[in-house]
């Protein structure tokens, strides 16, 4: 465990986001602690992706704030994010993995070592010299994970990483996520796949219409959802 050298917990206070006058998120008060993965779920348009982007700092909040309450400095350098559709540079697999390491000014030898280790972790070591954009969809997402993992982030945001993948590729991504979580990386991940939540989640954040309806340990969420919306959602009923 990372012990005192940590940027966690992550706390939001009255966090809100408005786009073009339309409120997307409002009054989000969350505390995300180190530990097992936090899964953010909710119907389409609930504001899951926006929440992740606010937490990661890609969007500036319209209201409230995001605070890293841990003692470690430079929280922006200790987090990474993987997007639903992986954004791969027009370079080789290895060069893609090296890019953020070089950006973080990690020395040549070490960045090469870390990049290759991350590629082995996701099973792409043999494809290191291939052009990244020639990989299959599942391979591309694994590469995006390797690229983020190579940075050794304390917290990793995953925005629907399996949304466009087939079951086999999804299983591969889940295995990688579980491995990273097991190594102590805090995972914050959105999904609309309840099976995935059961397989991975430590705790669940349930979003509905831009508000946090529940934030409970996964077991409790599935056993006894507190809100009517969550109950319907679990039953597979359409929510809006």
């Amino acid at each position: 465990m990372r012990a005192p050298d940590t940027i966690l917990p992550l706390r939001t206070d009255g966090l809100g986001f408005t786009a073009g006058g339309v409120p997307i998120l409002a009054d989000v008060d969350l505390t995300i602690e180190a530990g097992a993965p936090t899964l953010v779920i909710g119907p389409n348009g609930a504001g899951k992706s926006v929440l992740l982007r606010l937490l990661h700092g890609l969007l500036a909040p319209s209201a409230g704030c995001v605070a890293w309450d841990g003692p470690a400095p430079n929280p922006e350098r200790r987090q990474a994010m993987v997007f639903q559709r992986p954004v791969l540079l027009r370079r080789s697999v290895l060069a893609n993995t090296l890019y953020p390491l070089r950006l973080a000014r990690i020395a040549g030898d070490e960045s090469e070592m870390r990049a290759r280790a991350a590629l082995s972790l996701v099973g792409l070591a043999a494809l290191a010299d291939r052009p990244a954009r020639r990989l299959s969809g599942g391979e591309q997402q694994r590469l995006a994970l390797a690229r983020a993992a190579a940075l050794g982030p304390e917290i990793l945001f995953l925005d629907e990483p399996c949304a466009s993948l087939d079951p086999a590729a999804t299983r591969a991504v889940e295995e990688i996520v579980a491995t990273l979580a097991g190594r102590g990386t805090k995972i914050v991940m959105t999904t609309h796949d309840l099976g995935q939540v059961r397989r991975l989640a430590g705790d669940v954040v349930f979003l509905h219409r831009g508000r946090v309806r529940e934030h409970t340990p996964a077991a409790q969420f599935f056993a006894a959802p507190a809100s009517a919306e969550a109950t319907s959602f679990l039953r597979g009923e359409l929510l809006w």
Partner: peptide, 16 residues
């Protein structure tokens, strides 16, 4: 358009 979010996530400045 395609790269912006990812590069900002990596902490790359516009100049970079």
């Amino acid at each position: 358009d395609e790269y912006a979010e990812q590069l900002r996530s990596f902490g790359a400045s516009a100049a970079r």
